[in-house]
Amino acid sequence: MMIGDLEVHRLGFGAMRLTGFRPAEDRTEAIKVARRAVELGVNFIDTADSYGVGANEDLLAEALYPYTDDLLIATKVGRTRPSPSEWTPLGRPEYLRQAAELSLRRLKVERIDLLQLHRIDPTVPFQDQLGALAQLQSEGKVRHLGLSEVTVEQLEEARQVIDVVSVQNRYNLTDREHEAVLDHCAERSIAFVPWLPIANGDHASSRILTDLAAELEATPAQISLAWLLHRSPVVVPIPGTKSAEHLEENVAAARIQLTAEQLERLSAAGGR
Score class of each variant (00 low, 15 high):
M2H: 15
M2D: 07
I3V: 14
V8E: 08
F13M: 06
M16C: 01
R17H: 13
T19D: 13
G20K: 13
G20Q: 08
F21T: 11
R22I: 05
A30G: 14
I31S: 03
V33Q: 08
R36G: 04
R36W: 10
A37Y: 12
G41C: 07
N43E: 12
N43G: 05
N43K: 05
A48Y: 11
A48T: 13
Y51F: 11
Y51D: 07
A55G: 03
A55M: 11
A61W: 13
A61G: 12
A63M: 10
L64C: 09
Y67W: 08
A74V: 04
T80Q: 06
R81T: 14
P82T: 13
P84A: 13
W87E: 10
T88V: 14
L90P: 00
L90C: 04
P93H: 07
Y95N: 02
L96A: 03
L96S: 01
R97P: 00
Q98T: 04
A100C: 03
L102H: 14
E110L: 02
R111P: 00
H118M: 05
H118E: 04
R119W: 12
P122H: 11
T123N: 14
P125I: 02
L130N: 03
V142M: 04
H144F: 08
H144N: 10
L145N: 13
V152C: 12
D163T: 09
D163R: 15
V165M: 14
S166A: 15
Y171T: 00
E177A: 01
V181M: 10
D183N: 13
A186E: 15
I190Q: 07
F192D: 14
P194E: 05
L196N: 15
I198Q: 11
A199S: 13
N200F: 08
N200V: 03
G201W: 15
S206E: 15
R207W: 07
R207S: 07
T210Y: 08
D211W: 06
L212T: 03
A214C: 02
E217A: 09
E217I: 02
Q222C: 02
Q222R: 09
I223V: 15
I223Q: 09
H230F: 05
R231F: 06
R231T: 07
V234R: 05
I238R: 14
P239W: 14
K242C: 00
K242H: 09
K242N: 06
S243C: 11
L247M: 04
E248H: 02
E248P: 00
E249A: 02
N250E: 06
V251D: 04
A253N: 12
R255Y: 02
I256Y: 09
L258S: 10
L263K: 04
L263D: 11
L266A: 03
A269L: 11
A269E: 14
G270L: 10
G270C: 04
G270I: 08
